[in-house]
Every structure is written in C-alpha cells, then in structure tokens.
Design a protein around this nucleic acid. Structure first.
Lengths: 163, 163
DNA sequence: AACACTATTTATAATGC
DNA sequence: TGCATTATAAATAGTGT
C-alpha cells in the first residue's frame, strides 16, 4: 500500500518479502490488539513463516494459543460421540447462562476500573485530563455517586468539628 | 480511524461496538488473507464475540491449523516455561479479584462455545486457534497446567493413531 | 438494522541512511 | 541488514438512507 499499488501475489524477491512479512505481521498484531480492546472479545492470531522465523508468532501469547489448541485437539473425539443430541440443548442453555454471567462480570469489572481510574486522577495529575481519556457518560454516573458520598462525609466531619 | 481519531478503549455503546466489531473483523480477515498470499506463510486468526456471534470466526484452513499445531508441539520447554516466570501482578488488588473472576468466566464460556460449535457441525473445515484476550500475567498462571494437559493429550492421540 | 458514502486516520511500499 | 522517513494506498468512524 503505499508508494505504489501492488498486486496481491507472492513476492518472489526475498528481501522484499521479508520486509513485507515483518511490517504486516506487526500491523496484524496491532489490529488484533485493538479489536480485543475496543470490543472486549477474544481474538487470536498465529503467524508462522518457516523462512523467517523458526517459531510461530502468536498473539496474545503462546500460552493462550496452546490452550486453544488443546481444545482443538479435543474436537474430533467429541464429534464422534453421537449420543450428545440432548446435551447440545443443555449446552445451549449453559452457554446462555454463562454469557449472561459474563456480561455481568464485565460490567462489574469495568465499574471497578473506572473507580480506580478516577481515584488515581484525583490524587495525582489533573482529573480532567484523566477523565478525558474515558467515556464521559460512564464516568459521570460514577462521579455523581461518589460526590454524594463525599458530601455526606463532609457533613459528618463538619458536625464533628462543631461538637 | 476516520472522521475522528478515537481513543483505544472499550466501546460502551452497543450499536457502535457491534459496527466496529464487524468492520474491523472484516478488515482483519482481509489482512490475514493478504499476508498469507504475499508471503506464502501459515497464518490464522480466530475472533469470537459472545455478544454478537454465537460461533467463532476462523481462518484460514484446517490444514494450516494442523501444520501450526505440529510447530507448537516442537516448542522447547525452556521457552514455554519462560512465559510464566516473568509474570507479575501489576493490577491493583482491588480489581485483581474481579479480573480473575472475569477471566474464569471467559474461559468457561469459551469452552462451552467451542463444544457447542463442534456439535452444531463444524465438520467442515477451517479452524485455527483462537486466542483469548487474557492478560499475560493471568495467562502465566495457567501455562503450566495447560502444557501438561496438552502433552497428555498429544500422547493419547499418538497412541490412538498407532493402534 | 444493514448497507453506502467520505473525511480522516492508519498502514505500508518504496526510499534513504 | 536493519532502521527511519515519506508518499501513497487502504481502513474505517461518523454519517445518511
């Protein structure tokens, strides 16, 4: 893509091919990372060039990929078991349930992240700058609640100082 | 990337997130296809969103996955172990707990999805590995056990193929 | 909701060092 | 050989239908 529009075919020149391989590999990994971040999904890329790298390049990690590979190896055996028609329904329900739980967990987790982020901003650098990096609507809800709490605490302190 | 430079963070808006997911997923697939074509290498990607797709999206081929699998089995233990040695806790305690729960849910969910996936008839081809979106420090804790599982499974498969 | 359309941002092929 | 730079192609966020 750049100085020239190139055709989509095998690059015979070794040097150029290696350069392209490296550049595009990096780009791909970046894209995967962005996608997982933006949508909070699971994604994995495995790239292997016998020519350039002796080992496959994996993102996010070898461990993650290996774990999935272990699942992959399980597939044939499970498929051969024909007596799982009922179980499929059961699994569907389980999946639905687990998905619900997952969503809930995600929400909770995000809340905690926001909270932490907010407190960091308050004690450290400018809070406005920190908040600017986050979704303002989401932060707003949290801020509101925390302000109420703070307000309550302030009142208590004032009363204590008077007595 | 376009009308506006957006920050790299979870998109809370459901509609927007889904749109981005779809667009970027397509882009990613295209990139993988191009890379394999240009450099004639093995590459695969698995993207899975429990929110949007009930099934993981996978590229490029069964054969490719098999080849990659064989490479994984060759990985020296020193490198494997290395992965988990330098894992560190850089998350604060407050959110560490929630994060752990989240990972657990994700893992469970993924396993169930995979099972459902194959029951529904993935008898076709295509597969790769998917990667999970785990943090490296969390993955590190799982490495050892996963490796043991994989080794065991591989041995079983080898024995079966001999009989 | 699922496309088509652009204004921009990103990725990158060629080039330079 | 591998970097950094740059001119250009490609991807895509916001928008409209």
């Amino acid at each position: 893509m750049s100085r020239k529009k190139m055709k989509l075919a095998y690059i015979t020149n070794d040097t150029k091919r290696k350069t392209t391989y490296k550049k595009r590999t990096n780009g791909l990994v970046k894209k995967v990372r962005e996608l997982t971040t933006l949508c909070e999904i699971e994604a994995c890329a495995i790239i292997h060039s016998p020519d350039f790298d002796s080992q496959p390049k994996v993102w996010p990690s070898h461990a993650g990929a290996q774990q999935l590979l272990s699942e992959f190896k399980k597939l044939p055996h499970s498929i051969r078991n024909n007596k799982m028609v009922n179980q499929e329904r059961f699994l569907e329900q389980s999946i639905a349930k687990a998905t619900q739980q997952l969503k809930k967990r995600r929400k909770e987790n995000r809340q905690k992240d926001l909270k932490k982020f907010m407190f960091q901003g308050l004690s450290g650098k400018g809070i406005l700058q920190s908040m600017n990096a986050m979704d303002l609507n989401e932060v707003g809800l949290l801020v509101e609640q925390n302000l109420k709490d703070i307000d309550k605490r302030v009142r208590v302190l004032i009363n204590e100082s008077r007595s």
